[in-house]
Design a protein around this nucleic acid. Structure first.
Lengths: 186, 186
DNA sequence: TGCATTTATTAACAAATGTGAACGGAATGC
DNA sequence: GCATTCCGTTCACATTTGTTAATAAATGCA
């Protein structure tokens, strides 16, 4: 169940079996039904989670409309770093778009982990940078590409996701209205 | 000359005078004349630098036009993390908009620093996250606000910069054409 | 199965921003 | 100091995307 996770961690640095057991021992299984929230605006994020199975989105609400910033699926880490790292109230939401199975770790357990085996800081740092670069790429696409180019790019790079996510969310993710996306698809 | 830098570092964690001397010893003074590059597209970034005095921009080139992603001024760190961390060729450029005085550290010296005093990893991680959050905010503004709102926000939050940066660069930073910015200013 | 709700599509019109071109003034370099 | 280049502004017109509204299709639920 956690082979993917272990594989990913091992790619960043060499960890002993003992390190890995320690890490796994600090994780707890968790579930989200479709539509359930992992984090709501105003809350302080106290967990990060590795998705075993399912799909979630990090999004904000503008004028009553949900604007996805990121879709996070199986074998990826979900969380909102800004709230988690600074222990400040979140200005984002995270909810499940499908029934989702998680392994989550609390902020306290993460601190404990770093204390016992500081090498895990490299893993967190890797994640932070990866997340940064990914976000920056999407932001860049939003400002440099036309709506049509953004849509094609999204479809080509996320063919699997494009069939799991409703179009009005894809539209919002791409920074356009659902009507405009419909127009583009013709 | 480096009091600001020391103050910033001390805010993140407590460092002994010895730690600080070690750190300062790994920095080297450097200068950029207005228009000179700190990093060019295609190069691998091997340095990060703290700006003592001056102004720089991180930018990309699209269809021959310079598009600033970030303006970095005195008492801030300048560099391009994606190229620096992954030692990959840069897809961005960094150049000075004013004559600029720097204290720079090489990737090798940074590694050395982390090895001798791992607590400095917290400083790097702090910078990475700060940079992430700042970038995300700008990206969000670009997609959620109108051109007029973006301009007003920029002017109000960066009044000093707005007089040090030519308008065509501010326009590009805000994702609009210089002509459109002119129109807005009326 | 059938009703209610949500999501997707279409069209006419409006608004914001881009495009290309022209001009004047400022800064720059010789 | 003069010529040149660069920068900011203005205008008319084109293009893209938003807005509003109506309807169709799909989905969820009783």
């Amino acid at each position: 169940m956690s082979e993917h996770l272990i594989k990913q961690v091992q790619l960043i640095d060499n960890f002993t079996d003992q390190d890995i057991s320690l890490f796994l021992g600090l994780l707890e299984g968790s579930y989200l039904l479709k539509g359930e929230h992992f984090l709501k605006e105003g809350q302080i994020s106290r967990h990060f989670a590795f998705i075993i199975e399912g799909l979630t989105m990090l999004y904000q609400i503008q004028d009553g409309v949900e604007i996805p910033c990121e879709f996070i699926k199986e074998n990826e880490w979900v969380g909102y770093l800004k709230s988690f790292s600074t222990a400040s109230p979140s200005d984002m939401n995270i909810k499940a778009l499908e029934d989702t199975k998680l392994l989550r770790i609390s902020a306290e357990n993460l601190t404990k982990l770093f204390h016992i085996q500081p090498k895990f800081m490299l893993v967190k740092n890797y994640y932070t940078e990866y997340s940064f670069f990914t976000n920056a790429q999407h932001a860049n696409d939003l400002s440099m590409l036309s709506a049509k180019q953004r849509y094609y790019k999204f479809i080509h790079e996320n063919y699997d996701l494009s069939n799991r996510i409703p179009q009005y969310l894809i539209a919002a993710y791409l920074g356009i209205k659902p009507q405009s996306l419909s127009r583009l698809r013709k």
